[in-house]
Amino acid sequence: MDNREQTSPAQGENTRGYTVDELLAQMEPQYQAYKNTMRQCIAGLTEHAARLAAQGQEEQLPTFRRLLTDMAEFWGLAEDDTPKGYREMVEQIGSTFDQAVSAARDSGGAPELSEQTRQNILSGLELYAQEMRANDEELEQWAAECDSLAGGLKKQWYPAQPGMEMSKSDFWELIAGAKKECGQNMDASSQWLAGQLIARGPQQTQDFHDILN
């Protein structure tokens, strides 16, 4: 066997740096997944805005409309990556939003949001806030706005019921239980925790994530 094949990277042989293009290629699948999360969030927030319009609660609608276009621009969701393409994307998102809101306002009704749609909205807001903080400290106020919006939606969708909240002692009991059942196997621990949280319901699941974060 060629001894060079056994050389460790620490010895500096048979190693090379990655070019910018190679790094971007490796990151592309994750970046596309993030983009899909944001598209789902935008669609979900449009549905949520339509429900608010149907109920005559229109105070937040201008904020939602601006937020959706900001999200799309920040994440580069335009198919045509040119100034013209971005203008058309913003116009399309705004038009879709306006049409959904107008139709709900006229009919006085809009479908209840599915659990998946709610989770899409919360996941997108969390990701958007996270990336804004990572990219520029000056975007902190916008990240805080997303946090505030997500917090308000959580309270609206998952109102706490007496005796149903998860305490910090409950949280640590679950962590200890995962360690006892699964040891250091992180994948098995995650699956065990997921099963426990599903059994406890959406309120305690959200509490668990809030304490964890």
Rank of each mutant, 00 (worst) to 15 (best):
M1V: 09
M1E: 11
D2C: 05
D2A: 04
E5Y: 03
E5N: 03
S8G: 04
Q11S: 11
Q11H: 05
Q11M: 09
E13S: 01
N14H: 08
N14D: 07
T15H: 04
G17N: 10
T19G: 15
D21M: 10
D21I: 08
L24H: 08
L24I: 10
A25M: 10
Q26D: 15
E28M: 14
Q30E: 15
Y31T: 15
Q32F: 12
A33K: 14
K35G: 14
K35F: 07
K35C: 14
Q40Y: 06
Q40L: 12
A43E: 11
T46S: 08
H48W: 15
A50H: 13
A50D: 08
L52Q: 15
L52C: 13
Q55A: 15
Q57W: 07
R65N: 04
R66T: 02
L68N: 02
L68S: 02
T69D: 04
A72R: 10
L77G: 12
L77S: 10
A78W: 02
E79W: 03
D81C: 07
K84G: 04
G85V: 04
Y86N: 13
R87A: 13
V90E: 08
I93W: 01
I93M: 07
S95G: 10
T96W: 13
T96C: 13
T96S: 15
F97R: 13
D98E: 07
D98K: 11
Q99M: 14
Q99K: 13
A100L: 06
A100M: 10
S102D: 12
A103S: 08
A104C: 06
A104V: 09
G108W: 09
G109P: 04
G109T: 14
P111Q: 05
L113P: 10
S114Q: 14
Q116Y: 01
T117V: 14
R118P: 10
L122N: 09
Q130Y: 07
R133L: 15
R133N: 08
E137A: 08
E140D: 13
Q141A: 15
D147S: 01
A150K: 07
A150W: 02
G151R: 02
G152S: 03
K154M: 15
K155N: 04
A160G: 01
G163L: 03
M164Y: 00
D170A: 05
F171K: 05
W172A: 07
W172V: 05
K179Y: 04
K180M: 02
K180Q: 06
G183I: 01
N185W: 01
A188D: 05
L193W: 00
G195T: 00
Q196H: 03
I198K: 14
R200G: 06
P202E: 03
Q203D: 01
D207V: 00
F208G: 00
H209K: 02
L212V: 03
N213D: 12
N213K: 12
